[in-house]
Measured scan of single mutants.
Amino acid sequence: TTYKLIANGKTLKGETTTEAVDAETAERVFKEYAKKNGVDGEWTYDDATKTFTVTE
């Protein structure tokens, strides 16, 4: 399944996707990606669109 991340960070803005077996796995991947890019904010997830959003 393809999951999408929308990053609304102070230093990183944009979108990326990952293939994962479930939302929990995708969330781990995206949180690691955000951490590597210095983004720390509020996370939301929309199951209907398989989209995570992080906003600083």
Score class of each variant (00 low, 15 high):
16 T>H: 14
2 T>Q: 10
41 G>A: 03
24 E>N: 09
4 K>F: 14
2 T>M: 13
15 E>Q: 11
19 E>K: 12
26 A>C: 01
11 T>I: 12
35 K>G: 06
19 E>I: 15
48 A>I: 10
46 D>L: 03
47 D>V: 09
2 T>G: 04
6 I>Q: 06
50 K>F: 08
22 D>G: 04
27 E>D: 04
56 E>V: 09
44 T>W: 08
1 T>S: 11
2 T>F: 09
21 V>R: 12
19 E>L: 14
11 T>F: 14
50 K>R: 12
35 K>W: 10
19 E>R: 13
22 D>N: 13
27 E>F: 15
41 G>I: 03
26 A>N: 00
35 K>I: 10
48 A>Q: 11
47 D>N: 09
20 A>F: 05
32 E>D: 12
16 T>I: 15
32 E>H: 07
40 D>M: 11
54 V>E: 00
50 K>S: 04
41 G>S: 02
45 Y>V: 01
16 T>Q: 09
39 V>D: 02
34 A>R: 01
46 D>W: 03
34 A>V: 10
14 G>L: 15
56 E>W: 11
15 E>L: 13
25 T>C: 07
12 L>Q: 08
21 V>G: 09
55 T>D: 07
3 Y>Q: 02
54 V>K: 01
35 K>N: 09
45 Y>W: 03
47 D>P: 14
42 E>D: 11
47 D>C: 07
41 G>W: 06
10 K>E: 09
25 T>D: 09
26 A>S: 02
12 L>F: 15
50 K>C: 05
7 A>Y: 15
14 G>T: 14
25 T>E: 14
23 A>I: 10
26 A>L: 01
28 R>F: 08
1 T>G: 09
37 N>V: 12
49 T>R: 06
34 A>E: 01
5 L>Q: 01
38 G>Y: 05
7 A>V: 15
35 K>H: 10
31 K>C: 05
29 V>Y: 15
16 T>Y: 15
27 E>H: 10
1 T>A: 12
25 T>Q: 13
55 T>Q: 09
40 D>Q: 13
53 T>D: 02
10 K>G: 11
28 R>D: 04
40 D>Y: 14
7 A>C: 15
11 T>P: 05
21 V>D: 13
49 T>D: 04
4 K>S: 05
13 K>R: 12
25 T>K: 06
15 E>C: 15
9 G>H: 08
27 E>M: 14
32 E>L: 09
9 G>D: 04
22 D>M: 03
11 T>W: 13
55 T>H: 08
46 D>G: 01
41 G>Y: 03
7 A>T: 15
34 A>S: 04
55 T>I: 09
53 T>P: 00
